[in-house]
Write a protein that binds this DNA or RNA. Structure first.
Length: 305
DNA sequence: AACCGCTCCAACCGCCTGGAA
DNA sequence: ATTCCAGGCGGTTGGAGCGGT
């Protein structure tokens, strides 16, 4: 017996959201807050299932979302976090304010995977592909230049496979922590702290405003929140254009942590790169490590891509 | 201009989990 | 203890947009 669908799908709309639907959802959430997604479509006058509403809001309409491609620093962070957490996109996204798990997942699949493979790094294991694998990969790429979905070559060694499986198992066994709030530190996140970056450093890395390329993403003030009027399918890269809603007041955005514009500053990349000197514990000592060393290629080789 | 193939990403689907009943 | 429900997550898909021929 299959599981009941999340909602009665008869008569429900699917596919891209229209500007009108977005407007209804935004107005509803801003007025009532996020609660009981199942009830949202009915109360907001939408012919969507609650799940669809939640996704639309969290992945697209939330005012605190960043837009645009991931910056180089964000990309590095994603790679590092992926090496430690695997495909746990929501966990990874939790470390990148304003980014969604979906966005990071997409970026990983479309950009980062390719970069790593080009560099001879297995995106699955974050270990170098063996020379034989690289030759094979090259041959396959030559044969199927256009296809990125070439099956991955064999894993470098059974030990690595076990390592990944162990990580996967950890995911299952630690599922009880998966729902914990962002403020709590999970076991895995603790391991990140101890084996990799210091939490404070990670926080510094992850401090929203200074990190991001503000030229990619215009700062939006609460009073500037606008309701899109163009169909969503065509507004993917310029989401929040358009007709303002005078009924929405800045104070109604209390659930959004708006960056303090006065504290905004741009960091030089050189300043930022300093933050990538991680520490590892060696007994009682803490030793600095370069996270890029695990890839066994010079940092600059990545930056050239 | 038309066609084709590729890329990208918004959205969907199915499963899992925690909490309430 | 069990069942049900809602929310969350990760994998996958579909289609718009774009470049090449």
């Amino acid at each position: 017996m299959g599981r009941q669908p999340c909602c009665d799908k008869v008569g429900l709309k699917k596919g891209p959201w229209t500007a009108d639907e977005d407007k209804k959802l935004i107005n509803f959430i801003l007025t009532n807050g996020q609660c009981c997604w199942r009830a949202v479509p009915k109360l907001a006058g939408l012919l969507r299932c609650g799940k669809s509403c939640r996704l639309r809001w969290t992945n697209y309409l939330r005012p605190d979302l960043k837009r645009g491609l991931l910056s180089e620093s964000e990309e590095k962070l994603v790679i590092d976090l992926h090496a430690r957490l695997g495909n746990r996109w929501s966990k990874i996204a939790a470390h990148l304010p304003g980014r969604t798990d979906n966005e990071i997942k997409n970026h990983w699949n479309t950009h980062i995977k390719k970069k790593l493979r080009k560099m001879g790094i297995d995106p699955l294991t974050h270990k170098p592909l063996s020379p034989a694998d690289q030759i094979e990969l090259k041959q396959r790429q030559d044969q199927h230049e256009q296809h990125d979905d070439v099956p991955l070559p064999p894993l470098p060694s059974p030990a690595i496979t076990e390592e990944i499986q162990a990580a996967t198992t950890t995911k299952k066994s630690s599922s009880s922590e998966s729902q914990s709030s962002d403020l709590t530190t999970t076991e895995e996140e603790k391991s990140i702290t101890s084996s990799g970056m210091e939490m404070a450093e990670a926080d510094a890395l992850l401090t929203p405003s200074p990190l991001f390329c503000t030229d990619e993403v215009p700062m939006i003030q609460p009073e500037e929140i606008l309701v899109p009027s163009a169909p969503s399918s065509s507004s993917s890269s310029s989401s929040s254009s358009v007709s303002s809603n005078p009924s929405l007041k800045p104070e109604e955005f209390s659930f959004v942590d708006w960056p303090d514009a006065s504290s905004m500053c741009l960091w030089d990349m050189d300043d930022f790169s300093c933050s990538w000197d991680f520490m590892c514990e060696d007994g009682d000592r803490k030793l600095p490590i370069d996270p890029w060393s695990q890839y066994q290629y010079p940092r600059s080789s990545f930056e050239l891509l």
